[in-house]
């Protein structure tokens, strides 16, 4: 289970406004909190509900809320499949159906009931339609909060029934504070690098740093500077990423795409320096000389066509990685 931080950094104004005005006084019972993954929407939502419970109803059991065991709170996210023992690829309809009994039963106390769906991007068609049915017949004291990373992933019929709030990524100062909560001894230059690589998303940055992103980046740079196509370095590197979990591999591919797109920009004469806080732009400049635009587009095409199949059909990540780097013609 994901551990939710109880300390909110940033979004203080949002918290004050939403807890005072919108949730309880609002005419709608359903809300969408959307913004990039890892920017703190889940933490914010937990803090918001905690604030509403404590300020408006003098409820003091915040620990239950963060353990997801509060009687007036249901937290829906992807769960581990019992048979395969793997994380489901989406939120199943049974999980949404279970909310029905929660909504249609009374509250044991005076508190309103909250249902968080994190993230609603993971709903499949059946579970989306089941959720839609619940949103269409709102109950007075039940509130839905849908955490969404990409708004277009949500069915228009669900979107139209929710009040939407956009969350932007935190400032560098807040980003720094959040990262230092998890890694107190992190160096200043590493924070800038993480900010660049994660596009200001602290959640993503924490994941990257936990997965030794610096080593991965160094290895990637060696490969880009490699002269031979099927070199020992490529095979060794592919062996390392070959044992990654799906989530780790997704992170690796996101970094790869970021680097490739910026190399493309450099080759097209675009100044990328202003977009980066760290010296990553200099590194990209240096490797851009070794790679031409055609091979970058080939790799990006390959990823676009095959990335989904990799996770759906559980393909060999080592071979996938070798194929990517073989596409680079020097």
């Amino acid at each position: 289970m994901e551990i939710i931080s109880q300390h909110l950094i940033g979004y203080e104004n949002h918290l004050e406004n939403l807890s005072n005005n919108l949730i309880i006084k609002s005419s709608s019972n359903s809300f969408i909190f959307y913004g990039n993954k890892g920017i703190g929407k889940n933490t914010f939502t937990h803090c918001l509900i905690n604030k509403i419970f404590s300020d408006k109803f003098n409820e003091s059991k915040s620990n239950l809320l963060y353990a997801n065991s509060h009687p007036n709170f249901r937290y829906i996210s992807k769960i581990i499949d019992e048979k395969s023992n793997k994380l489901n690829s989406n939120i199943k309809i049974d999980q949404i159906r279970k909310i029905e009994s929660f909504i249609y039963q009374s509250s044991l106390n005076k508190l309103p009931k909250f249902i968080i769906i994190d993230s609603a991007d993971d709903l499949n068609i059946s579970s989306s339609n089941s959720l839609l049915k619940l949103l269409e017949e709102p109950k007075n004291n039940s509130y839905f909060i849908l955490i969404v990373h990409q708004l277009f992933n949500i069915m228009p019929t669900i979107r139209s029934r929710c009040i939407k709030f956009k969350f932007s990524h935190p400032s560098l100062e807040n980003f720094d504070k959040i990262i230092r909560q998890s890694f107190p001894d992190i160096k200043e230059k590493d924070i800038s690098l993480l900010y660049d690589l994660s596009n200001g998303s602290p959640g993503l940055a924490i994941q990257l740093y936990s997965n030794n992103i610096k080593d991965l980046l160094d290895n990637l740079l060696i490969i880009f500077n490699e002269k031979n196509n099927l070199s020992k370095e490529i095979i060794n590197f592919s062996e390392i990423v070959g044992i990654y979990t799906n989530d780790q591999f997704k992170l690796f591919l996101s970094i790869l795409k970021l680097i490739l797109i910026n190399i493309l920009k450099v080759n097209l004469g675009i100044n990328i320096k202003k977009y980066f806080l760290s010296n990553l732009s200099d590194t990209i400049h240096s490797i851009s000389k070794n790679i031409n635009n055609k091979s970058i587009l080939t790799i990006l095409d390959y990823l676009k066509l095959n990335e989904n199949d990799l996770y759906i059909f559980n393909l060999d990540k080592k071979i996938f990685s070798i194929n990517i780097f073989n596409g680079i013609s020097k």
């Binding site: 249609y104 039963q105 009374s106 509250s107 044991l108 106390n109 109950k139």
Partner: peptide, 19 residues
């Protein structure tokens, strides 16, 4: 209207009600 409590011997059963 929100809650029902049954005190049975040394056991207590508390339940939500259908709203």
């Amino acid at each position: 209207p929100n809650k029902i409590i049954f005190f049975i011997d040394k056991s207590v059963l508390i339940s939500k009600l259908i709203d």
